[in-house]
């Protein structure tokens, strides 16, 4: 099955093309990791066209889309999720969502990525790669997990432990998506892992306009 994988949960957007089968696993055909800051919307579709060109394939050949559902900064995160939903809808193919942290590193680890506001998104994994805790958001000082840590090395100091630098990868996204790819009918709807509520407080009292 030819799968297009996308992720915009971190400042490095990922677009990749891979062959996947239940028996043989993942073969990545093309991948682009683009440092995109807050320009995910600008850069994602060009990156998709880029990997299609790299692999010499047309969009019509894609049979499923996998996307990271975060957690990640909301505005960028939504770009990837809505792109996956729209592409899959327009082509009439399944769209599968996975936790983006699952696609960072392998094996026993605690993945940390930037949640802004001095916090980190994190999840902990067992030796066989299954997620045992998270995803959640926390101040790194209060995480209280032993590591080893993988992900955004900017948090090393505040974690008091080294962080092996790692980004979301196409292979990681496909690995995390395997159970759903094996049975696309079971795929859950694409709902971002926001983890935080929108910042909004209802006004406690209505102020007179003249004051």
């Amino acid at each position: 099955m030819l799968v297009l994988a996308l992720d915009t949960a971190t400042p490095t957007l990922v677009a990749g093309l891979a062959r996947w089968s239940a028996g043989d696993g993942v073969t990545v055909l093309a991948e682009r990791a683009v440092p995109s800051g807050t320009k995910h919307a600008e850069l994602l579709t060009p990156a998709i066209e880029g990997v299609l060109a790299d692999a010499g394939l047309a969009i019509g050949a894609v049979e499923a889309v996998v996307t990271g559902l975060g957690p990640g900064p909301f505005t960028g995160l939504r770009v990837g999720v809505v792109t996956a939903a729209a592409l899959a809808d327009a082509r009439g193919i399944p769209a599968v969502g996975v936790c983006s942290l699952d696609a960072v590193g392998t094996g026993a680890r605690t993945v940390v990525t930037d949640a802004r506001r001095k916090e980190t998104y994190w999840a902990a994994y067992a030796t066989d790669g299954t997620r045992v805790e998270g995803p959640a958001v926390a101040r790194p000082e209060e995480l209280g997990l032993p590591g080893p840590f993988t992900g955004d090395p900017a948090f090393a100091e505040r974690l008091g432990a080294p962080v092996t630098p790692a980004d979301v990868t196409t292979a990681g996204l496909l690995r995390a998506a395997a159970p759903q790819l094996a049975d696309p009918g079971s795929a859950a709807p694409l709902v971002p892992l926001y983890l935080r509520r929108p910042d909004a407080v209802p006004p406690t009292s209505i102020k007179p306009v003249t004051r």
Binding site: I48, I59, F74, R78, V82
Partner: peptide, 20 residues
């Protein structure tokens, strides 16, 4: 609103790409 606009822009770009 930037965040609101971007949902539409990303969706439209994806439909355009998928439909050629």
């Amino acid at each position: 609103l930037t965040g609101a606009l971007l949902v539409g822009v990303a969706a439209a770009k994806a439909y355009a790409l998928a439909l050629g």
